[in-house]
Design a protein around this nucleic acid. Structure first.
Lengths: 198, 198
DNA sequence: GTCTATATTAGGATAGAC
DNA sequence: GTCTATCCTAATATAGAC
């Protein structure tokens, strides 16, 4: 009756090894892309052997999905923290844009999802796209709160803004400016269309 | 003396096989990306065997570079043809934006360079980036001709516009609109900042 | 949980016949 | 110029010992 072991403590370091793999994988995926990061690379970075990774994740795609989900969660938190201090809708959107670019060039985890999108495995695509939409919903909400000039669609505006920001990853090195400056400069382009204040 | 054969005709189909390889490779690279397209795929599409490709191109990267250069040339021509009929600077830029998106979603050759940028082999990167700059120079010229609101940098404007357009490749399927409509909608976001006409 | 060892597949590239 | 045949490398993934 009393022989059964009950795990009371399960939250301290909720799975140190698994978490380490997740972290390193996120870093490598973000830095070199999904295709160019091998399970060997990840294992080496963690300090274990390739085969051992498969004890924690059944496949490379499953690992990607886990990395992705965690990255999105973290990114949404960062985003919300950045917009919280602001009340003007345009300021909130700008804060989000700055935070977004910071997340991207931070080399962090979410960059995979964002920058490497088209090159991710087709079989996991559906799940990954769902996660990305969860993140982009934050922007959808922010954009719904601003006034746009006539003739400018809300979704076009949102997609253009996110596209401009995401695309900056491809040319970021050229410019010595810090991410926040780049984001502000890009955002100025979109803010230029703001209706004059009453 | 007269035994030597002289090839008088050398311009009719200037290298049918080489051209066919180039075309098919462009198509496959554009459709599936560089990494996911194997030399075997290309050879099969052309109707020859993998080894035979190497008679025409020394390596996969060399093939990519050739595809890229040809694609850029063709894209620049398309771009110039599209802007030629227009005289107003904003109309010219809009025409270029529409043409650009058409080229991209045309599934054609240049999509590789554009969409697959970060995933191309590092060793060929320099050459490829130089080619891309040649293409983007057209936009640089067009942007230099428009009036921008104060506080909006020209290069930020150009990069934001190209980013918005290029990024549309990642979500294009969702929207049933034809490329020209998508481009027009996106461009409206940027045009909203136009200074009121005198 | 991690190791050793290895199966399996796939892709880039080459040698030499024809 | 194209074919046949093959080498070499790298990557995902698995089996079973410890």
């Amino acid at each position: 009756m009393f022989g059964k072991t009950i795990d009371v403590i399960e939250c301290a370091p909720p799975d140190s090894r698994r978490t380490r793999i997740l972290d390193r994988a996120a870093l490598l995926f973000g830095e070199h892309g999904y295709d160019r990061t091998s399970m060997r690379d990840i294992a080496t970075a963690v300090g274990i052997l390739p085969g051992s990774v498969y004890y924690h994740f059944p496949s490379k795609e499953a690992l990607l999905a886990a990395v992705y989900a965690a990255a999105i969660d973290q990114a949404i938190e960062t985003l919300n923290a950045a917009i919280a201090p602001h009340s003007d809708p345009w300021d909130r959107l700008e804060a989000a844009a700055i935070a977004h670019l910071g997340i991207l060039v931070g080399g962090g985890s979410i960059a995979v999802v964002i920058a490497d999108g088209p090159n991710l495995p087709a079989t996991a695509r559906t799940e990954l796209i769902a996660q990305r939409h969860r993140y982009e919903a934050v922007f959808r909400t922010l954009v719904s709160a601003i006034d746009l000039p006539p003739g400018v669609g809300r979704s076009s505006f949102r997609l253009a803004l996110l596209g401009a920001l995401n695309w900056s990853l491809t040319w970021y090195h050229a410019n010595g400016d810090p991410p926040a400056t780049v984001a502000r400069n890009l955002f100025a382009v979109f803010r230029a269309g703001r209706l004059s204040n009453p």
